[in-house]
Each structure stands twice: as C-alpha cells, then as structure tokens.
C-alpha cells in the first residue's frame, strides 16, 4: 500500500519505471522453501513471505497424497501453520523437515 501511494505522487514519467521495478521486486519477494522428508526427498515450493505457512503444508500433503498427519518442523520445532514466513523471519531456502508420526510399544 505504501508503495502505491508513493507511486501516485510521483510523475507519470517515472511511474512506469517504478511499476516495472515493483513487479521485479514482487518476483523477488517469492521465496523458495524446501521440504525434506525422512527419505531425504526434497520438495520445493515458491511462496510469498506474507502467506500462511499452513498453505504450503496443505499443498505438500496434496502433492504427496498424504492423508495421514505429518509433522512439519523447522530447526527441530513444530511450526504453527497459522503464522507466515515473515513472522518466523524465514528466508529463501528455508528447510522444513517432514516427519511421519510414529508410535511404539515394543511388541514382539
């Protein structure tokens, strides 16, 4: 929003230039995040930093046909899917680990 206001104030001549710049910037704004499962299979997603992380999680599950729950962690911590990448200061190339849930009881 702030960018747009700035654009309006500027001259028409420079406006086009700025718009081009903005578009470029928007493209740069996309960050790539990596999902690594326990078989070390990597899946990349291009996401907007301001989007919910949960969106990518859903996409990952759809992509891999996972209907059971999996755990997404970042640096060992579970990630709250309602947060955005910006909230977590995630940068390009952030790596999520995907773990399938396990149980154990030591049956023979």
């Amino acid at each position: 929003m702030a960018d747009k206001i700035v654009i309006e104030r500027q001259s028409a001549a420079t406006a086009m230039n700025n718009i081009n710049m903005l578009e470029k910037k928007k493209k740069e704004d996309h960050i790539r995040v990596k999902f690594v499962n326990q078989l070390n299979e990597e899946t990349y997603f291009k996401v907007l930093p301001s989007s919910n992380i949960g969106k990518a999680f859903k996409a990952y599950c759809q992509h891999h046909n996972l209907n059971h729950q999996v755990a997404f962690t970042y640096n060992g911590d579970r990630v709250n899917p309602r947060l955005t990448y910006q909230d977590l200061d995630l940068e390009d190339g952030a790596e999520f680990d995907v773990f399938t849930h396990v149980g154990g009881g030591a049956a023979a």
């Binding site: 911590d77 579970r78 709250n80 849930h101 396990v102 049956a107």
Partner: peptide
Amino acid sequence: NSNIQITGEMLQCLRPGAWLNDEVIN
C-alpha cells in the same frame, strides 16, 4: 510454545494397553 496440538485420538494412546505416539511424548 511447541505448537503441538493434541487431539483426543492422540491422547487415547495413554489409555492402558495402547502404544504411545510421538506427539504425546514430545
């Protein structure tokens, strides 16, 4: 803090005779 949600299903692993799952342990 850990963003772990425990559903009734997960907690049921604490019923006698059930195997513990990793969420409960975590």
